[in-house]
Design a protein around this nucleic acid. Structure first.
Lengths: 256, 256
DNA sequence: TGCCATGGTCCCACTCACTGGAACATCGGC
DNA sequence: GCCGATGTTCCAGTGAGTGGGACCATGGCA
């Protein structure tokens, strides 16, 4: 533990997370060397830690190819926030999908990003662009703006301070414009977005609150930008968000 | 690392897994003391490790209540096996749900258990009894038997040796009966089960193979035992399993 | 058939991160 | 204010963890 190149790794656990986080979605397995490179750790260290993680089934190994293991999947499903919200949301999302025919998403906030925790594909809609477990920029998506509108002002400032990265030509980059939109969203209960994150994709979202009033996430409906009429879906989305709050009450949801 | 009470914990990583695995589905958060008790570790150690895990967002903390964190959910979604199979399976499962109206499940094998990796609720079916990420006994479910029928004989022996635990009065406990069923399943391509795992619940399943011929898991349709006609669903289930194999070919699945 | 490049494991002396008991805070409850 | 329960901090001791490098496979390539 001598030179931490970038003040990153401090203990074994941190070293382990460097390893686990070296994986990304399009990997068909990594070798020890590649893993060591990405994690910024010596090969011998990675080799040893990987052996332990494989033993614990947090990683799997097929010859030289190493992937994330089944146990991580299992544990992930037990994570409190996603589990609770998902369980309550699935029937509501199914309704929303039926009434709109479009793709329906559910996401929760994590610092300056949204994490998608459920997706339902609309009957005639294009395949969703977001993956369960995928991250979305908070300032460039309807889901994100819906949540941000009800977050403390400090959070908005933090997002702005981090820089409003442009994902498309339509991404809002001006803090003033963003704030104005957030005001509107707070008033109208609906956030919208047209091609700000993905070209040709529109989205409308509503924030979801727990019965306690705590902000927990957002639901959205998204579809192909041309012909997407947010106003038409607005009542259904708002209703879904309210319904979700009700189902989040203890005993309010029993379905999967 | 002096006295490992039951030869369990050896290194920090093992200690960490003891902590993570102390959580189960119906927990609304654990305190340090409870966690230490379950993990069989000293409080001070747990306190310290939890602090690191919270920093890494593998755990979350709300006052004294500790839960599994969002990052575990994210990582879990990246796990190779479930991800690949799920992606290929969802449309197939949706079809199966439509044609049968019952609940549809997808599971993969993990040693002597099946791990459920996708669930779809049938239009008029009762809520599924299995949770995504949940485990099922291999010998007492159609999903399990479908897979076991195509597994090496040694695996069957291992399952038998571990004891055929009775989940209901109908669970198969006689190895000879089980083996005979497995033969039938191998011949007919369909595994069935009537109230062997949950009282009043029937299920029919088919094994799923990768294009390479490797056994990867099973799909099932399940419903209320009275009126459940496995034969009626058989063709659809077999077709779904075959379709899945085709979609598992590289480039065969693009949808979510 | 050698030869090199690549990728993974093993060895082992060094040492610092980790350990855990005990003391110290903090919070409710009565 | 006292008490039990819960969580955090301290600190000396030490062995778990480290990582450079040797070693061992593979698998092209000529």
């Amino acid at each position: 533990m001598r030179d931490a190149a970038a003040g990153d790794a401090l203990g074994v656990l941190d070293r382990m997370t460097s390893i686990l986080e070296a994986f990304d979605q399009d990997d068909r397995g990594l070798g020890i060397s590649e893993l060591a490179l990405r994690a910024g750790l010596p090969k011998s260290t990675v080799s040893r830690l990987v052996a332990t993680l494989v033993r614990q089934r947090y990683l799997e190994r097929d010859g030289k190819r190493i992937h994330l293991g089944l146990r991580l999947f299992e544990l992930g499903q037990l994570a409190e926030q996603p589990r609770e919200l998902r369980a309550a949301a699935l029937p509501v999302m199914a309704d929303l999908r039926t009434t709109t025919g479009e793709n329906v998403h559910l996401a929760i906030r994590d610092r300056r990003e949204m994490v998608c925790i459920a997706v339902m594909r609309g009957r005639f809609a294009a395949p969703p662009t977001v993956r369960i477990g995928g991250r979305l920029p908070i300032h460039a998506t309807a889901l994100g703006k819906a949540v941000l509108a009800h977050a403390p002002a400090a959070d908005v400032e933090e997002v702005v301070a981090a820089g409003l990265e442009a994902w498309t030509a339509h991404t809002i980059r001006d803090p003033a414009v963003l704030c104005r939109q957030l005001d509107d969203i707070r008033g109208g209960g609906l956030a919208t977005e047209v091609g700000e994150f993905g070209a040709g994709v529109s989205c409308a979202a509503s924030a979801v609150f727990a019965p306690s009033g705590r902000l927990v996430g957002a639901v959205s409906v998204s579809g192909c930008a041309d012909g997407f009429d947010a106003d038409r879906f607005a009542p259904a989305i708002r209703a879904a968000a309210l319904m979700l709050t009700r189902r989040l009450a203890p005993g309010g949801s029993r379905a999967v």
